[in-house]
Structures are given as structure tokens and as C-alpha cells.
Amino acid sequence: MTQHVKIPQDRIGVLIGEGGETLRRIEREAEVSLDVDSENGAVAVEKTGDPVRGLKGPDIVRAIGRGFRPDDALSLLDDDMRLFDTIDIDRAARNDNDLRRKKGRLIGENGRTRELIEELTGASVVIYGSTFGVIGGPNEVEIARSAAEMILDGAPHGAVYSFLERKRTEELKHQGMDYHEYHG
């Protein structure tokens, strides 16, 4: 069964990679066949091997299309529990100025907010175009998504950071560690 994914024009080169290297790696590791229409960004993804691995193929392509590096997108294959999710920032924005402001709040000064979301959740996070993208385990994705939604709803950064730290501490306790052991 073939699935169709559309990615932005400026991400086609990243998907294909130098000399087609990235495309072949995705095909090999995800056990899919990719047919890329470089005119319009349409990508046909067809499973060729293990159906479970093949199910991740469209998400790998979508993740690269949403700004993730190919290695981060391919991490979706690391185990069955890794997920890719996006938030459409444009939907939360009233106009172009509001979109820029909301994106800026998600990124933070010198990228610090995005980095803290990654650091405190363990997920990979990208803000690209008008989307917030996240790759991680189910809990990591859920917490990163909640933090992003808080920021988009106008919550102060300090409140979001406190939320993230509290969730991180809960997760570490669940794993039998405390925050100080984790941070050394």
C-alpha cells in the first residue's frame, strides 16, 4: 500500500541527500520505497519489507519535511514507542504578526526555550515554518506538546519551565533517580 506525503520544496534536498544517500538510507532502514516528485514535493511511500518498520516511513518523511535532520527522523525506527507529532502554530495565531510572536516565544531568546523543552523532556524539538514538531517517547511527546500549548496560550515562560522541571522530576522519580543524581 502506498501512502502520499507532501513536504515543502526547500526540504526535498534534505530528504534526498547528497547523491541520493539519505533517500537510500531511509528506504533501506525503514524498508520502504520512496518516489519523490521534486516539482511539487509529493512523496509516495510504499512498504517493501517489514510492515511495522514500513509504517514509520511516512512519518520519517513528514518529520524531515517539518525541519528535522534525517538522523532525528530515522530515530523513529529505534523502537515501536517513538512518535512524531506536530502542532500547527498558524491555527493558534490571529494574523502574521501573531504567528511570528508565537514562534518567537516557542524558540525563545537564542533558541533557549526550544532547547529547554528538549533538555527537560528528552524529546527532539523543531520549530519550522508554522509548525512545532516533536519526536520522542509517548510521555516525552505529551509533555513537550503541553509545554508548547502553554506557551502558545500565553503562559509566562517561567511557569512553563516550572511545569517542565516538575514533570522531569516526576519522570526521574518514576525511574528511581532524583534530579541531583541525574544532573550530577
Results as ranks from 00 to 15, higher is better:
residue 104 G to Y: 03
residue 104 G to D: 14
residue 104 G to K: 00
residue 104 G to C: 07
residue 104 G to P: 08
residue 104 G to I: 05
residue 105 R to T: 11
residue 105 R to K: 15
residue 106 L to R: 01
residue 106 L to M: 03
residue 106 L to N: 04
residue 106 L to I: 09
residue 106 L to S: 10
residue 108 G to D: 13
residue 108 G to N: 15
residue 109 E to M: 05
residue 109 E to D: 07
residue 109 E to C: 08
residue 109 E to K: 01
residue 109 E to V: 15
residue 110 N to T: 15
residue 110 N to Q: 13
residue 110 N to R: 14
residue 110 N to K: 08
residue 111 G to M: 14
residue 111 G to K: 11
residue 111 G to R: 02
residue 111 G to S: 06
residue 112 R to I: 09
residue 112 R to E: 12
residue 113 T to E: 11
residue 114 R to M: 12
residue 114 R to T: 02
residue 115 E to V: 03
residue 115 E to M: 07
residue 115 E to W: 02
residue 116 L to G: 04
residue 116 L to E: 11
residue 116 L to M: 01
residue 116 L to F: 09
residue 116 L to C: 06
residue 116 L to W: 06
residue 117 I to G: 15
residue 117 I to M: 01
residue 117 I to Y: 07
residue 117 I to K: 02
residue 117 I to W: 01
residue 117 I to C: 08
residue 117 I to Q: 14
residue 118 E to I: 10
residue 118 E to S: 08
residue 118 E to M: 09
residue 119 E to H: 00
residue 119 E to Y: 12
residue 119 E to I: 09
residue 119 E to M: 11
residue 119 E to T: 13
residue 120 L to M: 06
residue 120 L to K: 01
residue 120 L to Y: 11
residue 121 T to H: 01
residue 121 T to P: 11
residue 121 T to Q: 02
residue 122 G to A: 02
residue 122 G to N: 12
residue 122 G to R: 05
residue 122 G to K: 00
residue 123 A to Y: 03
residue 123 A to I: 12
residue 123 A to W: 04
residue 124 S to Y: 08
residue 124 S to R: 11
residue 124 S to E: 12
residue 125 V to I: 15
residue 125 V to L: 15
residue 125 V to R: 06
residue 126 V to H: 00
residue 126 V to P: 01
residue 126 V to G: 02
residue 126 V to Q: 12
residue 126 V to C: 01
residue 126 V to A: 14
residue 126 V to Y: 00
residue 127 I to E: 14
residue 127 I to T: 09
residue 127 I to K: 03
residue 127 I to D: 05
residue 128 Y to V: 04
residue 128 Y to I: 10
residue 128 Y to H: 05
residue 129 G to S: 02
residue 129 G to A: 02
residue 129 G to T: 10
residue 130 S to Q: 01
residue 130 S to L: 13
residue 130 S to C: 10
residue 131 T to H: 12
residue 131 T to L: 00
residue 131 T to Y: 08
residue 131 T to S: 04
residue 131 T to D: 15
residue 131 T to Q: 04
residue 131 T to R: 01
residue 131 T to F: 10
residue 132 F to S: 08
residue 132 F to M: 02
residue 132 F to N: 13
residue 132 F to E: 12
residue 133 G to F: 12
residue 133 G to C: 04
